[in-house]
Amino acid sequence: MITKAIKNAFVHAERKGWDRTYWAFDIHDTIIKPNWSAEEIPTEFYPLAKETLQIITKRKDVVSILYTCSHPHELENYLRFFEENDIFFDYINENPEVRSESYGYYENKPYFNVLFEDKAGFDPLEDWKEVMTLMTSEDFNTITN
Rank of each mutant, 00 (worst) to 15 (best):
I2C: 10
T3M: 10
A5E: 15
K7V: 11
N8T: 13
N8C: 11
A9F: 11
A9E: 06
V11W: 01
H12A: 04
H12W: 03
A13H: 03
E14R: 11
E14K: 13
E14S: 08
R15W: 05
K16S: 05
W18E: 14
W18K: 10
W18Q: 12
D19C: 00
D19K: 07
R20A: 13
Y22C: 07
Y22N: 08
F25T: 02
D26E: 10
D29K: 04
D29P: 00
I31E: 04
I31H: 01
I32V: 15
P34S: 00
N35D: 03
E39M: 08
P42C: 04
P42W: 02
P42I: 04
P42D: 06
P42N: 03
T43D: 00
E44L: 00
F45G: 11
F45M: 10
F45I: 12
F45W: 12
Y46M: 05
P47M: 05
L48N: 11
L48V: 08
T52E: 14
L53M: 15
L53Q: 13
Q54R: 15
I55R: 14
K58R: 13
R59A: 10
R59T: 09
K60G: 10
D61N: 15
V63L: 12
V63W: 07
V63K: 13
I65L: 11
L66R: 01
L66F: 08
L66C: 09
L66I: 10
Y67H: 14
Y67A: 14
L75K: 13
E76W: 11
E76L: 14
E76K: 15
E76A: 14
E76N: 13
R80C: 14
R80P: 04
F81Q: 12
E83W: 08
E84N: 15
E84P: 03
E84R: 12
N85V: 05
F88N: 05
D90L: 05
I92N: 01
I92M: 01
N93M: 13
N95T: 07
N95W: 10
P96K: 02
E97W: 02
E97D: 06
S100P: 00
E101A: 12
E101L: 06
S102G: 00
S102P: 02
G104C: 10
G104I: 13
Y105S: 03
Y105A: 02
K109I: 13
K109S: 14
P110D: 05
Y111M: 08
F112T: 02
N113D: 15
F116W: 06
F116T: 04
F116D: 04
E117F: 03
D118H: 12
K119M: 09
A120W: 11
G121A: 11
F122M: 07
D123F: 07
D123M: 08
P124I: 03
P124R: 01
D127K: 02
W128C: 11
E130N: 12
E130A: 14
V131W: 04
V131E: 04
M132R: 12
T133A: 14
M135W: 13
S137P: 03
E138R: 02
E138M: 01
D139Y: 00
F140Y: 05
F140P: 02
N141A: 01
T142F: 01
I143H: 02
I143V: 08
T144N: 01
T144L: 06
N145C: 05
N145Y: 09
